[in-house]
């Protein structure tokens, strides 16, 4: 049967057409994406990478909620200029507890993967509430509401940790039981800063590139 007459069959049969499209379009996914999902080396944490604490996880969820990843990447590329500007390039093992990943696709602001420890908590606080009081030319939005809202109201932290435990994050029963009290008295901005300060601290100290 020639290719054209085979095709005549397909284009005259709704079911065959649907099946053909499904088949042809899934090959790429099966050959290219599935192996990545099974690749163990992408799931091994680097030396200092650990699960997020209740406070850091809440901060990360605020980071997601405010769409920080729209303007800030978290992916230092292995280029001389990037390593110099931001720090050691990003390793797969640093992201094993990131659901979802927050690498971003646009740097309207600088990369944040190695921002942890670079600025003081106070600097972050002032900067988040009024960016232009710190950097006059900044075009970052101000986030005054973060200083007013309670961190415990961001979502059900117990349910969050339990959900992540189902996905394989090593939270103990004690971690989950203590989660509510860890957030007590904290504002959203405290949680966000805690998250920013632990960003990119997953590599062993002697790695400098």
């Amino acid at each position: 049967m020639s290719a054209l007459s085979l095709h005549k069959k397909i284009e005259e049969n709704t079911g065959l057409l649907i099946f053909g499209i499904l088949l042809v379009s899934s090959i790429g996914g099966l050959v290219q994406i599935l192996p990545v999902l099974n690749q163990q080396s992408l799931q091994i944490a680097t030396e200092n990478t650990r699960v997020y604490s209740a406070v850091e996880l809440t901060g990360r969820d605020i980071y997601i909620r405010e769409g920080c990843s729209v303007c800030h990447s978290q992916q230092v590329r292995p280029l001389i200029a990037e390593v110099e500007r931001y720090g050691p390039y990003s390793r797969a093992g640093e992201f094993v507890y990131d659901r979802p990943f927050l690498w971003g696709s646009k740097r309207t602001g600088p990369d944040l993967h190695r921002v942890g420890g670079k600025f003081s908590n106070d600097w972050h606080r002032v900067h988040l509430i009024d960016p232009r009081s710190v950097i006059a030319a900044s075009i970052m939005p101000a986030y005054p509401w973060l200083a007013k809202r309670e961190a415990s109201q961001v979502g059900n932290i117990t349910a969050k940790l339990s959900a992540l435990r189902i996905l394989g994050h090593p939270y103990s029963d004690e971690d989950i039981a203590a989660a509510d009290s860890e957030l007590e008295g904290l504002k959203e901005i405290d949680a966000l800063i805690a998250y920013l300060q632990m960003l990119g601290t997953g590599l062993s100290e002697d790695i400098s590139i």
Partner: peptide, 20 residues
Amino acid sequence: IPVTIGKSYSVYAGAQDAVV
């Protein structure tokens, strides 16, 4: 995995989530 009505966690993590 849904956590609350407006929040869920991806079943994929990190680099794998990026590829998907």
